[in-house]
Computed example of a mutant assay.
Amino acid sequence: MEVIKSNKFWLQQWSSDLIGLLFPDLCNACGISLFQNEHLICTKCLYDLPYTDYHIHQENRVAKQLWGRLPITAAMAMLYFRKGAKIQNLIHNLKYNNKT
């Protein structure tokens, strides 16, 4: 019984590796192949994301731009956006390629 479980695991792993070779999961930010425990974004891109601290300050740049325009109590941006940067790739993949 143990041999059957071992063979079944090996077959599942082999088929998973083959599918990964033919249809690799790619990082949504930079496009390189993801490692086994990475999902959606590679570790390097995840580490390099340009986070803001706007959630700490109620009077941040985003909130100030919206004052008087919309009836809101708070606003913030999680990441800085720069044209051509990896965050633009993430937003583009989310918006146009339905990659969450």
Rank of each mutant, 00 (worst) to 15 (best):
7 N>K: 12
28 N>F: 14
22 L>G: 06
19 I>T: 03
8 K>G: 00
35 F>M: 14
27 C>L: 06
85 A>C: 14
17 D>C: 05
73 T>Y: 15
20 G>T: 09
88 Q>K: 09
6 S>W: 08
4 I>Q: 08
29 A>G: 07
65 Q>K: 11
37 N>G: 08
64 K>P: 02
1 M>F: 01
87 I>T: 14
57 H>W: 15
98 N>D: 08
74 A>Y: 14
46 L>D: 02
37 N>W: 04
13 Q>I: 03
72 I>N: 08
1 M>A: 13
53 D>Y: 01
69 R>N: 03
32 I>V: 14
54 Y>G: 01
1 M>E: 14
98 N>P: 06
26 L>Q: 10
61 R>E: 10
75 A>T: 07
99 K>D: 07
35 F>T: 15
84 G>E: 07
20 G>M: 06
29 A>K: 00
67 W>D: 11
5 K>R: 11
51 Y>I: 00
6 S>G: 12
13 Q>N: 14
54 Y>S: 12
61 R>L: 05
58 Q>G: 11
5 K>M: 07
30 C>I: 04
68 G>F: 09
35 F>H: 12
100 T>K: 10
82 R>P: 05
52 T>L: 00
31 G>N: 10
47 Y>G: 06
37 N>P: 11
64 K>I: 12
38 E>T: 06
99 K>M: 09
47 Y>T: 10
11 L>V: 10
13 Q>S: 13
19 I>E: 05
21 L>E: 07
2 E>P: 04
65 Q>H: 06
41 I>M: 04
3 V>L: 04
54 Y>W: 09
60 N>K: 02
33 S>K: 15
38 E>C: 03
64 K>V: 05
70 L>H: 13
58 Q>F: 13
86 K>A: 06
36 Q>L: 03
21 L>T: 00
86 K>H: 11
25 D>P: 00
67 W>G: 05
79 L>R: 01
59 E>S: 05
98 N>E: 15
26 L>V: 09
15 S>M: 10
62 V>Y: 10
18 L>S: 09
66 L>A: 08
91 I>S: 13
45 C>A: 15
25 D>I: 01
12 Q>I: 13
63 A>E: 03
64 K>L: 15
14 W>H: 11
23 F>S: 09
23 F>A: 14
11 L>R: 01
7 N>Y: 07
58 Q>P: 06
68 G>I: 07
26 L>D: 03
21 L>I: 01
70 L>T: 09
91 I>G: 14
90 L>Q: 08
47 Y>M: 11
23 F>W: 15
19 I>C: 01
31 G>P: 06
9 F>L: 13
12 Q>P: 03
68 G>M: 10
57 H>P: 00
96 Y>M: 10
48 D>N: 10
13 Q>G: 08
53 D>Q: 05
14 W>G: 03
77 A>K: 02
19 I>K: 08
33 S>I: 13
23 F>Q: 13
4 I>R: 12
28 N>K: 14
29 A>E: 00
92 H>Q: 13
63 A>M: 07
62 V>K: 08
51 Y>Q: 11
20 G>A: 11
86 K>V: 03
86 K>Q: 04
7 N>C: 12
61 R>T: 01
55 H>F: 04
93 N>Q: 09
90 L>T: 07
43 T>H: 14
1 M>N: 15
67 W>F: 12
10 W>K: 13
39 H>A: 00
65 Q>C: 01
92 H>N: 10
29 A>D: 02
18 L>P: 02
51 Y>T: 05
52 T>V: 07
8 K>L: 13
69 R>H: 00
46 L>G: 04
72 I>V: 09
80 Y>K: 15
77 A>P: 03
